[in-house]
């Protein structure tokens, strides 16, 4: 027993040195939190199955477009002698279709994967053990946000890249510029929606509530942008339409000023949503 005490006291005397270093190592703490988030994504297999789903979704679109005439012919139950003329799909149109696939299935999967990211830890009390340590609330939220971003941008790149590659193989080559531009615009839309999920995960007790509130908000914004494009062109909801345009237009998309505003408001909204999450977390770091 005494031996153990000696060890403790011995190290205690030297404890001032690391503590003074503590204050300057906010970056190290952030990296530790981020490392934990990434490890959690890996151990819960999210880092594996989410990209796989995206890749499958991405490959399916060009493959289906390519084989559509044959599929209809074999399974269509058409009367003998019917002639179906399906124009060969444009490569850029296939990419835009892929994006709209991601816009439904992809965002649903990501929102479901991230819905409990704060509320789960808060409800179990695991967040209490982290937040009683000298960890800033902002780095707690930002580490979670960055892990979501890594997962969503990575999955999107993999899935969209696969779609682009298969379109090239089966249909035609699509220029890199429209591909990358539409990728970035869509990625920004994903980031916005998932930041809303993060906020609601901090605000609400229920994980499902967070997923469906943010999906609802996403649908509302896209529908509004579609219904009254004149007035909603500046909203982040216009980003999806912008991405489709970017994919289908040759070369650089000529962006109107209102479209630039959609990008800017999305960025501002993401920052504001993150700040709101930090404030909410600060107000009640843990629940009983």
């Amino acid at each position: 027993m005494n031996g153990a005490n000696e060890v403790y006291r011995g190290t205690h005397r030297g404890a001032e040195a690391p503590r003074s270093a503590t204050r300057s190592s906010g970056g190290a703490v952030f990296l530790t939190l981020l490392g934990k988030e990434c490890l959690e994504l890996l151990r819960s297999f999210k880092l594996i199955w989410v990209p796989i789903v995206f890749a499958v979704l991405g490959i399916m679109q060009p493959v289906l477009s390519y084989y559509m005439p044959i599929i209809i012919e074999k399974a269509g139950n058409m009367p003998e002698g019917t002639v179906i003329e399906i124009p060969a799909p444009m490569g850029s149109q296939v990419l835009a279709d892929t994006l709209s696939q991601f816009g439904v299935m992809g965002i649903l999967i990501l929102a479901l994967a991230c819905m409990g990211i704060v509320s789960g830890e808060r409800n179990s009390g695991a967040s209490a053990l982290v937040l009683v340590k000298p960890v800033s609330y902002a780095s707690y939220i930002l580490s979670k946000w960055l892990s979501i971003m890594l997962l969503s941008w990575g999955s999107l790149l993999l899935g969209y890249g696969a779609a682009w590659y298969y379109t090239w193989l089966l249909i035609e080559y699509v220029d890199v510029v429209p591909f990358l531009l539409s990728f970035v615009l869509y990625g920004l839309w994903f980031s916005f929606v998932l930041t809303v999920t993060l906020l609601f995960s901090t605000a609400l007790r229920s994980a499902a509530g967070a997923a469906f509130t943010s999906l609802g908000a996403a649908i509302l914004l896209t529908v509004l942008a579609g219904l009254i494009p004149k007035y909603m062109a500046w909203s982040p909801g216009a980003l999806t339409g912008l991405a489709y345009q970017a994919a289908t237009s040759p070369g650089w998309l000529q962006m109107e000023p209102a479209s630039w505003w959609a990008v800017i408001t999305a960025l501002i909204a993401i920052a504001a949503l993150l700040a709101a999450s930090v404030v909410l977390l600060k107000r009640a770091p843990a629940r009983d």
């Binding site: 503590t22 204050r23 190592s25 703490v29 530790t32 939190l33 934990k36 982290v130 340590k133 000298p134």
Partner: peptide
């Protein structure tokens, strides 16, 4: 180890 790193230990 995670807890220690959060408290600023190397």
């Amino acid at each position: 180890v995670y807890a220690g790193r959060l408290c600023g230990l190397g």
